[in-house]
Structure formats: C-alpha cells, structure tokens
C-alpha cells in the first residue's frame, strides 16, 4: 500500500509539472465541447441536442483518459523507469494501483469539467439526481478508460504502438455504442460487438437518465457492467504487465 501511494504521488507530481499534458487533458476537451456547441448551433431547432451533448462529452473524457494513461505507462517502459521500478522492489499490482490512484484525480476532474461545460453551454436542465447520476456514469467511464489505457499499454513497446488501438477500439465505439444511432438499427453482429465497448454501457445509462422518470433500477445493470469492466481490465493488466524480459 505504501509503495502504491508512492507511485500515485509521483504520477500526480509528473502530471502537474507537465504543462503540455495538462493542457491536452483538461483544456482540450473543454475546447472541443465548445466547438461542438458552435456546430450544433447551425443545426435546425428540431435537432435533439440533449441526445448528443452529454454522450459526446463522455466520449471525449473516455478517449483522452485512455490515451494519456496508456502513453504515460508506455513512456515508463521506453525511458527505462518501469524496469528501474521493478528492480527497486515495486510489484506489478503496486504500479498499476498507483497509476489508477494517480489518474483517478485527473479522471474526476475531466468528468466534472466536461459534464459541467456541456450542461452549461447546451443549457440542459436536469434535476440534482440526474446530474449526480450523469457525473457517476462519466466518472465510472473515465476509470474504465484509465484501466483500458493501462491494459493496452502492456502490448506497446513505444508510444507509437498505442495509436493503432485508437482506430481499433476507440473510434469503432463512436459508431457501435449508440452514440450516433440506436444500436437496434445496426446489423445484429454490430449490435453484439457494440456491447463490448465501455462507451456503450455509459451511453445506455446517459440516454436513460436524460429522459424524465428514470429510476436507479433502470440503470443499475449498465452501471454494474461498467464497474465490472474496470475490475476485469485491472486484473488483465496485472497479468499482462511484463516484469521480466
């Protein structure tokens, strides 16, 4: 536990001392949500902004949390600090848990900032319970994204090898997770494949709660799947992180 906290503290210090990283992880999603607002403003008034605003903000958090976490961990390998941590007695579980803790703060901030901006810019009027649930689901998605980043990083030997996973995992989730069209309208195989992406389950909760009259029973299944996603990815990452060449 002590070494987990050490890794987490070090990850946070690194994040805070890297201005480019901070700009990319915090300012970029806010700017993109604003660009989305400008784009949506050109569409006819009949366009259902609420159907897309929060899911797109959730997607941005998902994409950036995944990418930044994966690249940070791969950098540990390319710089030789991963090997050095292992030789200094850190265990796989301590390193992974330290990263989860370190990125949890960033994921929380991204979830709060992205969601708050989307709700403010698009003038979405939700009650407190709905806002609370939207935060919970975006936050859970951010954590799952961090876990996905950790897991994927174990397959990359350098930063460049992370990027092929963007078109493989992140971009298909835009089309197959119900973000743009209902998954029921997709071919059966694509509908089935869509269920494999964490964004599908997050979007499922978001679409349920932005409609009036939702109850916790309606969303608990998808929330549980999202949480289970994180646990399974964490376990897989613990197994695949290479300690020895």
């Amino acid at each position: 536990m002590r070494r987990t906290v050490l890794v987490a503290g070090r990850v946070v210090r690194q994040l805070l001392r890297n201005p480019r990283f901070l700009v990319l992880s915090v300012a970029a999603p806010l700017v993109i949500v604003y660009l989305l607002k400008i784009f949506f403003d050109t569409l006819p008034e009949t366009f259902d902004v609420a159907r897309y605003a929060v899911p797109v903000a959730a997607f941005l958090v998902h994409f950036l949390a995944f990418l930044l976490c994966a690249i940070s961990l791969v950098q540990e390998r390319t710089m030789g600090t991963m090997e050095r941590m292992f030789v200094n007695g850190f265990r796989r579980t301590e390193i992974i848990a330290g990263y989860v803790l370190g990125f949890l703060g960033l994921a929380t901030f991204q979830a709060v900032a992205g969601l708050a901006e989307a709700i403010w810019l698009f003038e979405l009027d939700y009650d407190e319970e709905t806002l609370g649930m939207l935060f919970v689901v975006v936050w859970l998605l951010a954590i799952a994204s961090v876990m996905l980043g950790i897991f994927i990083s174990t397959f990359a030997r350098h930063e460049g090898q992370v990027f092929p996973f963007v078109p493989l995992i992140i971009l298909p989730s835009v089309f197959l997770s119900g973000l743009l069209v209902e998954v029921d309208e997709l071919p059966a195989w694509a509908d089935w494949l869509g269920h494999a992406f964490p964004l599908f389950w997050a979007n499922d909760v978001i679409q349920d709660v932005i409609e009036s009259g939702w109850s916790f029973e309606d969303v608990q299944g998808s929330l549980a799947v999202l949480a289970a996603y994180s646990v399974v990815l964490l376990l897989l990452a613990s197994l695949t992180l290479r300690e020895v060449e």
Binding site: N18, M79, V87
Partner: peptide, 14 residues
C-alpha cells in the same frame, strides 16, 4: 541491490 541502467531511466518532469 542497487542498479544503474545504461539509459538515464529518470522521470524527466521531476
């Protein structure tokens, strides 16, 4: 044991 690898193996932002 102590180990100094061939590359610097340091956290450059720290």
């Amino acid at each position: 044991i102590g180990y100094m690898p061939q590359s610097a193996a340091l956290y450059e932002d720290l």
